[in-house]
Structures are given as C-alpha cells and as structure tokens.
C-alpha cells in the first residue's frame, strides 16, 4: 500500500512528458554540427534554427547556436543563445564557459553595483542549485520533521536526544524554503533581455526625445522592470536604469 502511494506521489510530482520528439530534430542538429565543423556557419545556423521545437528547449542546441553566431560576429544573438541554454539547464558548464568567453569581447558598462558578500553567497546558493532542488529539499526536511515528531510522540519512550532531529529538520526546511523562493524569483520571475543592436541608448523617458543616460553595445544584459508599449524600463548590471526601445532587445524567455 505504501509503495503504491509513493509511486503515485512520484508521478504527480515529476509530471514528465512522454511525448515522442521527432527524429528530424536530432538530424538537423547533426547537420548543423557538420556545417559548423566545416566552417560553413551560415548553413550551420540555418540547420540549428530548424532543430528548435516549440515548448521544448535544448541547452546543447542553444550552446551550439551561440557558438555559430559568435563565429559570424553576431555577439548579441550569441549571448542570447548562451543565456537561453542556461535557462534551459542552469548548470550547463559549456554555456557558462562560452558566456564568460564572449563577455570578455563585449563592450560592457563598468559594473558599479555589487551586492554584499552574504547576499551574493545567498544568491549563488539559490541560483546554483536551482529552484527545483531547493523546493524538493524543503519537502524532504518537512517530511523528516513530521516523521521525527511522530516518532518522538507516539513510538519512542521519550528518552534520549532523538527530539533534536525535529528542530534541526524544521530549520533546514525553513532555509530550503527561503532558498527555493529566491531561486524561483531569480530563475522564473525576472525577465532578462539581451541587447541585439550594435549600439542602444538608455533614455530617461520612453520616447526618442528622451535624454541619453547610458549607451550599451550588443550582448549586454538588461533586467526588464516594466513594459510600456514598445518601450522597456530596464536596469543594467551597473545599476543604471532607464527606458530602451523594445526593438533593440530580445527577451531570454520568449
């Protein structure tokens, strides 16, 4: 009975999709790879673009797309592809390395805003292991705390220090909950965009008559704080905020 219950629970939580993906995706990916290796980047790009499927993502595909754009000198789309690879798979090492490598070639505003060590570590922990990991950790510790309490109350003779497991589990569950909440915000609630235009002006108002407050090049990331018609109110990594034409950006989560 318990096993059956566990299985049902697992199925409900995991909710995987058993839909069969078309073989053509893998074929197009292989064609793209072959063109890339031959140095025919335009054809590689075309093949990789055909390997994309709505509702699905592939960190490897986005990574290779980014490499192809980089070879074609299109740094904006390259950064966007690497970012999308990391959204698909936050711990994808190849995309992380490529993003670092391409960032060193880009013109970026000097970062003036730096979070404190504790906040930075907290964010790194949250984003590093991802929202799902921390959410399941929270559930695990919650179950552990409940089980320990039950054992302590109903089965043990209330002797020894087994009760210490209860506050410890509850504490860990609380931290996991907070980290999961933060990771969820970092991963899903924030809308990042990448500058696609060679030069994009950040203005002080959503109009072309606005005064320029910053000039950024292609490949720069901007956090979208507000959307207004064809304008985004964004925050740059150097804490500069302003309006930018939506035509100059591409959202990471489209």
């Amino acid at each position: 009975m318990l096993r059956l219950f566990s299985l049902i629970l697992l199925l409900a939580v995991a909710a995987p999709s058993w839909a069969q993906l078309p073989d053509s995706l893998a074929k197009q990916f292989a064609i793209g790879y072959a063109h890339y290796e031959k140095g025919d980047y335009e054809k590689a790009l075309s093949a990789y673009q055909k390997a994309a499927l709505t509702g699905y993502c592939s960190a490897e595909l986005q990574n290779n797309l980014g490499l192809t754009y980089e070879k074609l000198g299109q740094y904006g789309p390259a950064v966007l592809a690497f970012e999308r690879a990391l959204f698909c798979q936050p711990q994808f090492a190849a995309a992380q390395d490529n993003l670092k490598a391409i960032s060193s070639k880009l013109s970026r505003p000097k970062a003036q805003e730096k979070a404190g060590f504790i906040f930075q570590t907290w964010d790194n922990m949250a984003a590093g292991l991802g929202s799902h990991f921390w959410a399941y950790s929270f559930l695990f510790f919650l179950f552990l705390a409940a089980g320990s309490l039950a054992y302590f109350l109903f089965f043990s003779k209330k002797q020894g220090k087994t009760w210490l497991l209860i506050p410890l589990s509850l504490l860990l569950a609380f931290f996991s909950f907070m980290l999961s909440r933060r990771a969820n915000y970092l991963q899903f609630n924030r809308q990042w965009a990448v500058v696609m235009s060679p030069e994009a002006a950040i203005l002080d108002q959503p109009s072309i008559q606005g005064k320029e407050v910053e000039l950024v090049g292609s490949g720069n990331k901007a956090l979208i704080l507000e959307e207004k018609e064809d304008w985004y109110y964004v925050r740059l990594p150097n804490a500069v905020q302003g309006w930018i034409s939506a035509k100059l950006l591409e959202k990471v989560r489209s």
């Binding site: 995706l25 993502c57 592939s58 595909l61 290779n64 490499l67 980089e70 959204f87 698909c88 929202s131």
Partner: peptide, 18 residues
C-alpha cells in the same frame, strides 16, 4: 570558446515548481 557539442537532448521548457 568551447568546442561545439556533438549531440543534443530536448526537454520541456522549465516551469516553476515552487
């Protein structure tokens, strides 16, 4: 830059669980 990857896998676009 890293070398291109030879194979790829597709997965549903991540959705929030929390």
């Amino acid at each position: 830059m890293q070398a291109a990857l030879k194979s790829a896998s597709w997965r549903p676009i991540p959705q929030p669980f929390f």
